[in-house]
Nucleic acid binder design. Structure first.
Lengths: 350, 350
DNA sequence: GGTTGGCACTCACACACTGCAAGTGCCAAC
DNA sequence: GTTGGCACTTGCAGTGTGTGAGTGCCAACC
């Protein structure tokens, strides 16, 4: 995959792709010679370009148009050619600063990660909330809202919070609710759904509210486990629309649909959760027709064996891969660190 | 505002606007005569149209184009001409059914309201979460997550939940945390920010964690009151893009920016919160240049004096006002009912 | 064999031109 | 006040054309 190409061809391919990525205009032989002061004439470049086209790395739309990378070309670029850059220190500092300012709230991390990623990579971003691999009960609280209305707040082991309202048949004073909550917290501490479910059969519960609470908790936890792949937050529609690919209305509709519906994006999440490192899926590699003109750069973040989520960038195949990859990697590290604080209480103190 | 126009002119204006709303094509005199079998000739209609144009209710883009309503025309239509329809019973039943299925979770109501509204009115929708007029403390919980890491869950009177992580300098066992939480819950029950803030000065608190928790709670509640107008959820981008107005890319950008940034939308929320009934703001009436080509139909929902939010529809000025208004009104009623259950424990039981 | 200049060839794109269809505005007649 | 007739305006779709960018090929050269 590597020795196949002569040094010169590798260089030319790299230049073509880099130029195309930042100009979005098909690249001509003439331009390469002029702009990079190559020591050969444009005719030579033309024959090299023709060879690269023969190998499947480039195409052109019509005879008199410059070259454009194919999916295979981008793939080769990502794998073998591109410079592995990082974000500048200034950028890193600015990003860290922003995260520092919202340090305490999980939802805001997610939102911020999406916003920063979109701005940094100039494309749309995708973020899923960190999820434990398995729902584990942490805490529940029953709060009397108004006479027979009770608010159930369920905290899971990974910090997920779910709220539900329950309407009782009789008025329950707050201290009765608190006692029930304390009993259940004690009984279910760190329990999985299975354990809680099994516990129901082992004892004979007569209190209607307790039965109902148990039911709601079990259903919430089951629902949680079902939803592991969903809940994709996306941001940066405006940023991705600034890419020249979206000069046509049909194209805009397409990306909006992908981002909102999550169609075509869904299958990538479990894959990213299951792999290490940054995943890059380019155009046709999706095997999904709607995604043929889009690339996705995704990676997992979180704490091994405990909790994980996914952050990524989506945009046209003509994407600034080096930058997208470093941005995604950097944000994923930040998110992992933040979760580390949450889980293990490292670093920061008040 | 009403007696100014002859019966015939009112009819013609109404027909023009209705036709234009559902066809989005400028309306010709000929068409009106043919389609509605009017008893006069097209020349007569033409002179009436010219008169309506003179009065400022219609325009045309060039000599040989049909008539198009002006903002004033739409305004007159909404105020005096349109049929006050309601959603069909079938639609109402379907919508109620959907809400019934997610009855227990607040976030889902909001999301569903947005989705339903967008689909029903074929435009973008705007929903804000229900907020109490003033933040009132309801309950807080301190949960030991891991050694020195503590999760603070704050429940406000209107059901809003905020979570924050706190890192202590020393390890705090759960039962110590629970005792502290119980003490604070007792002390702050139903308190406003002012009361909590004043309480701080009245006593001498030495425990570092207690100081920190107090600080976080106060800041959260202040932040909450600051944020009353923000937190605008929007949905239905896809629906609004299906309107023919968005055949041009520039126009799409505009609506995306309005929906995401909330620019131009912000000022409307407090206005809607402060008024009764459905508010309709048409095009230039916004007094905001970016909004000159958009109309917004908004209304408050909630419980008087307790808690309120806003639901609405936004789309091009050529909007199906009767339908948008009835959809908004219907959804607002449903949301109010749901909140009623939450606050007063009416209706439903398990 | 690789490299080069020269040149014919191919398209996309911008531009102007044209004819057509849709509608209006006006007017004289009723 | 209403009507038919007619001139006039304008958008729009279709067509033709010139231009510029860039390739592919080839014969000559090193």
């Amino acid at each position: 995959m590597n020795g196949e190409l002569s040094e010169r061809r590798r260089l030319i391919l790299k230049l073509v792709i880099q130029e195309y990525i930042d100009g979005s205009v098909p690249i001509a032989s003439e331009l390469l010679v002029r702009k990079y002061g190559l020591a050969v004439s444009s005719a030579t470049i033309r024959s090299e370009l023709a060879a690269l086209e023969e190998l499947g790395y480039l195409t052109h739309l019509h005879t008199s148009a410059g070259r454009v990378p194919t999916d295979a070309g981008y793939r080769f670029f990502v794998e073998n050619l591109m410079d592995r850059t990082a974000l500048t220190l200034t950028e890193q500092r600015m990003i860290r600063h922003q995260f520092h300012q919202v340090r305490t709230e999980l939802d805001q991390w997610i939102q911020l990660a999406g916003a920063v990623l979109a701005r940094t990579a100039q494309n749309a971003s995708v973020v899923t909330a960190p999820r434990a691999y398995q729902a584990r009960f942490k805490h529940l609280e029953l709060i009397s809202i108004h006479e027979t209305t009770v608010l159930l707040v369920l905290v899971l082991h990974d910090g997920t919070i779910r709220q539900q309202t329950i309407v009782c048949d009789v008025v329950r004073p707050q201290d009765e609710l608190s006692r029930l909550a304390a009993r259940l917290n004690d009984r279910w501490a760190d329990g999985t759904v299975e354990r809680i479910r099994d516990g129901v059969h082992d004892r004979d519960v007569s209190d209607a509210l307790e039965v109902h609470v148990t039911d709601v908790v079990i259903r919430s936890m089951e629902w949680f486990e079902d939803q592991l792949n969903s809940g994709i937050h996306s941001d940066g529609l405006m940023e991705v629309l600034s890419q020249p690919e979206f000069a046509k209305v049909a194209r805009i509709r397409q990306i909006v649909e992908i981002l909102q519906g999550g169609r075509g994006l869904g299958p990538l999440i479990p894959r990213a959760l299951a792999s290490d490192g940054v995943q890059v899926v380019i155009g046709g590699e999706h095997g999904h027709d709607d995604m043929r003109e889009y690339s996705v750069v995704l990676t997992r973040y979180g704490i091994d064996g405990e909790v994980a989520g996914v952050v990524g960038v989506i945009g046209p195949t003509r994407m600034a891969y080096p930058r997208a990859i470093s941005a995604v990697r950097y944000i994923a590290n930040i998110m992992s660190d933040l979760l580390g604080v949450f889980y293990n209480g490292e670093n920061t103190r008040y």
